[in-house]
């Protein structure tokens, strides 16, 4: 089973890298782009076919390691 975890910064947390990317896009001539936020994507392969268990396991992985919930949100998508 394939899973994708997306980690994004919470609202209100300053994102200097997102800001720099936004500036770079603008300097490339892409006008009208605002509020660029940088995040992370993790692709995982989970053994077995129990989706409920996989989701619970991945949630635990996010809480324990993949995301820092002080500053980040996460979402889980199972194939």
């Amino acid at each position: 089973m394939k899973a994708r975890v997306t980690v994004t910064l919470k609202n209100g947390v300053l994102d200097p890298q997102g800001k720099a990317i936004e500036g770079a896009l603008s300097s490339l001539g892409f006008d009208g782009v605002g509020h660029v936020r940088q995040g992370k994507v993790f692709d995982l392969e989970i053994e077995g076919s129990d989706r409920t268990k996989a989701e619970a396991d991945i949630k635990a992985m996010c809480e324990k390691l993949l995301a820092n919930t002080v500053i980040e949100n996460y979402s889980i998508a199972l194939d």
């Binding site: 300053l14 200097p16 720099a20 820092n68 500053i71």
Partner: peptide
Amino acid sequence: LVEAGLLPGALMRNTSL
């Protein structure tokens, strides 16, 4: 220490990058 939850908060990339 902050990642371990022994201290509050988080340390992020310097604003200057």
